[in-house]
Design a protein around this nucleic acid. Structure first.
Lengths: 219, 219
DNA sequence: AGTATCGTACTGAAGTATTCAGTAGAGTCA
DNA sequence: TGACTCTACTGAATACTTCAGTACGATACT
C-alpha cells in the first residue's frame, strides 16, 4: 500500500525542492528552518525521504563522501513538484501548542510553590535559549549569511512570528511566577488573588500582560 | 516490561486526582482543559488509563450505565498521587508550537499568492474559533459554571496565556496577509519589500506587530 | 605519531501516539 | 417509529519518537 503524504512529507519535499540533500543534511536544515514551525525528530528525517522515493516524488543517488564512504543524495522529481503545487491549494490543519509546564501549572497542587516556579522558570530559560538561537540566525541574515536569498522574505515573515511568540512566553512566565509567588500554597491563591478581576478582563477582550517596549537582554 | 510514564500519562493521572472518570469522561474533560496545553487524540485517552492501572497508579471498576450497559470508572491510587508529587519536582520539557500554515509560508513558491493568503486566513479563522471556544469557557467561570472552584486560579492563569497566544496569532495572520498581498508573486517580494528593515527591528529586540488595544470582535 | 574529540552519515528495535473505521446501546424530539 | 445525537468504547494500520549503536573522517593537541 502507498503510504500517505503527511505534512511532514510535504515539509521534506519542500526542502528537496530547494536543492538535493542527503538525509543528514535534511536533518540539519530542518533543525534550522522547520524547528519552530513543524518540529520533527532527527530520526524521522531519515525515514521520510525513503517514502518520497517510493511514491515517485524523489530520487536517491549514492555519492562519494570521503575515500571509502558514500552518502545518499535525494532529489525532487517533477511529480514531486506537482504534488507540492496541489498541496498548496488544500486547507492547512489548525495550529497546536504544547508545553509540559502548562500541565504542571494545571496540576500544581501535587507539588510546592517552588516546584511550580521552577517549572515556570524552566519554560522561560528554554524559551530564551530558543529565542537567542533564532535571533542568531536572523543576525546571520543581516550580515549576509543567507542560504537562499530569494526566500528571505518568507523566512523573515515566519521569524517575525517566532520572535513575538518567544517574547510572549517570556513575558507570561514572568507574570505567572509573580502570581505563583503571591499564593500561600499551590491550592490556596490567598486573599490578594485577582482571579475574578482577570476573568472580567479576559472576557472583555482586554490584555492582562503589559506590553513592554524594547528591552535589552541577552548578549 | 513496564511502559514508561510520559507527560500524557501524568496529564491523565492529574485528571484522575480530581475525581474518578470513565475514559469517555476523560476524553471530554481533556478536550476542555488540556486541549491548548497538551493536545492528545481522543483515542489516546482510552489507552492511557489502562496503562496507569498496569502500573498500579489507578484502579478500574465496572459500573452500570443504563439498563444493560456498563462503563469503566478509573480512580487514582495513593501510589499514583505519589507519582504526581515526584513528577512535580522534575524539569519539564521545552515548549513546542506547530502550524501547517507556517510550512505553507516557508514553501509558498509552489502555489499562488491566493493559495498563501487562503492558508493564512485559515490559520486566522481556526484560531478565532479556538479563541471564542476558550472565551466561552471563561465566561462560564464568570457566571458560576466552575467544575473545580479551588483550582480556578490555575485555570485562569493558563487561560491568560492561551488568550494572549490566540491574539498574537490573529494579529500576525493579518500582518502576514497584508505583507503577502504586497508581493508580486510568491517568489518576488517586490520593490516595496521591507525585509531588510524588519531584520534590523527583530535583531534589536523591537516588536514588528503593533500592539493594538481592546478590539471588539466575535459575539 | 598517537589519540582524543567532534562532525558526518546513518540503521534497528521498541515503544508511543494518531487516524480511521466500526460497533452498539441510550436518550430525545418530531 | 424513525432519525439523530450522545454515550462508551475497540481494532488495525500507520506515523512518529526514543534510544542505542555503528563506523568513517577531519582537526587539534600533546
Amino acid at each position: 500500500m502507498a503510504p500517505r503524504m503527511t505534512t511532514s512529507s510535504y515539509a521534506v519535499l519542500g526542502l528537496l525542492a530547494l536543492r538535493p540533500w542527503s538525509a543528514y543534511d535534511l536533518a540539519q536544515q530542518a533543525e534550522r528552518s522547520l524547528r519552530f514551525a513543524w518540529p520533527k525528530s532527527e530520526r524521522h528525517l531519515y525515514t521520510e525521504p525513503k517514502k518520497l522515493v517510493d511514491l515517485g516524488y524523489a530520487t536517491v543517488k549514492e555519492e562519494p563522501a570521503g575515500p571509502t564512504r558514500t552518502r545518499k543524495m535525494y532529489d525532487i522529481t517533477d511529480s514531486g513538484r506537482e504534488a507540492l503545487r496541489e498541496w498548496s491549494k488544500t486547507p492547512p490543519a489548525p495550529p497546536a501548542f504544547e508545553a509540559e509546564t502548562m500541565v504542571r501549572l494545571l496540576f500544581a497542587e501535587h507539588g510546592t510553590i517552588d516546584d511550580l516556579t521552577d517549572a515556570l522558570a524552566k519554560l522561560k530559560t528554554d524559551t530564551e535559549e530558543l529565542h537567542s538561537w533564532s535571533l542568531s540566525i536572523i543576525e546571520g541574515y543581516d550580515s549576509g549569511d543567507i542560504p537562499f536569498p530569494d526566500r528571505l522574505h518568507l523566512a523573515v515573515l515566519l521569524a517575525t512570528f517566532q520572535i513575538e511568540l518567544f517574547t510572549l512566553i517570556e513575558r507570561w512566565s514572568d507574570y505567572a511566577i509573580a502570581q505563583a509567588n503571591q499564593w500561600q500554597d499551590t491550592t490556596t491563591p490567598g486573599t490578594a488573588d485577582r482571579t475574578p478581576e482577570i476573568i472580567r478582563i479576559l472576557t472583555s477582550h482586554q490584555t492582562v500582560l503589559n506590553q513592554q517596549g524594547p528591552k535589552p537582554h541577552h548578549a
